[in-house]
């Protein structure tokens, strides 16, 4: 499958958050304003690409030759955790404002299911190294676009009179559902 198709599909038709519902937790919690959402999106995308870049060779050159694929989950999560630690230190050092804004959600990328999801999808679908990287980049950008769209809508919502019981998480879930329904319209167009 061509790289462009994989990339486009990962962003639009197979959007990791709106079609597969992975990575929902920060999608809901960190989407209050666009600046924070963009920072979080960049952090998630870089961790996604970096995990795939490391996990792919570990899987094919270390786990498979020794028939130790049953270690996949443990190894993948360990590598994700190390990467997130590094991203956390880098963001704290060079982008303190972003660090303060994303708060606890930055270390929580470790247990963000979209990251593990991306690496597992690329294994299951048997992507090559380059295909996996492109797929991870596409998924990250798709996640970022989705959270940006959500934060833009939530910023507009501040000026609307949402019924009291629906304010906050309630209306956010409904918006996420409507966005997902919109994106479902793309499904079947390209299948990965």
């Amino acid at each position: 499958m061509s790289l462009a198709v994989i990339f486009f599909a990962a962003i639009v038709t197979n959007n990791i958050v709106l079609i597969y519902f992975l990575g929902i937790c920060p999608f809901i919690s960190v989407s209050k304003d666009m600046e924070t959402a963009l920072g979080m999106g960049i952090a998630v995308t870089s961790v996604m690409v970096a995990t795939v870049a490391l996990n792919w060779p570990v899987n094919y050159f270390l786990l498979e030759p020794f028939s130790a694929q049953y270690l996949q989950y443990a190894v993948f999560i360990m590598i994700i955790a190390v990467l997130v630690q590094i991203v956390e230190v880098v963001v704290d050092r060079y982008f303190p404002v972003l660090y303060a804004m994303v708060g606890v959600f930055l270390p929580l990328i470790t247990v963000n299911c979209s990251i593990l999801g991306v690496i597992l999808f690329s294994m299951i679908r048997g992507y090559s190294y380059v295909q996996s990287l492109v797929f991870a980049g596409g998924c990250g950008i798709g996640w970022t676009l989705a959270i940006l769209a959500m934060s833009a809508i939530r910023m507009k919502l501040r000026f609307s009179s949402v019924p009291l019981p629906l304010q906050g998480i309630g209306i956010t879930m409904i918006i996420a559902a409507l966005m997902a329904m919109g994106f479902l319209g793309f499904s079947g167009w390209i299948s990965l």
Partner: peptide
């Protein structure tokens, strides 16, 4: 499998140590 886990954990530990020390 045991060796893989040990060596990966050691590399991870070393990287984190360096990141902590320098960054």
């Amino acid at each position: 499998a045991f060796m893989i886990l040990i060596s990966l954990s050691s590399v991870a530990g070393l990287i984190l140590y360096l990141v902590d020390k320098y960054l």
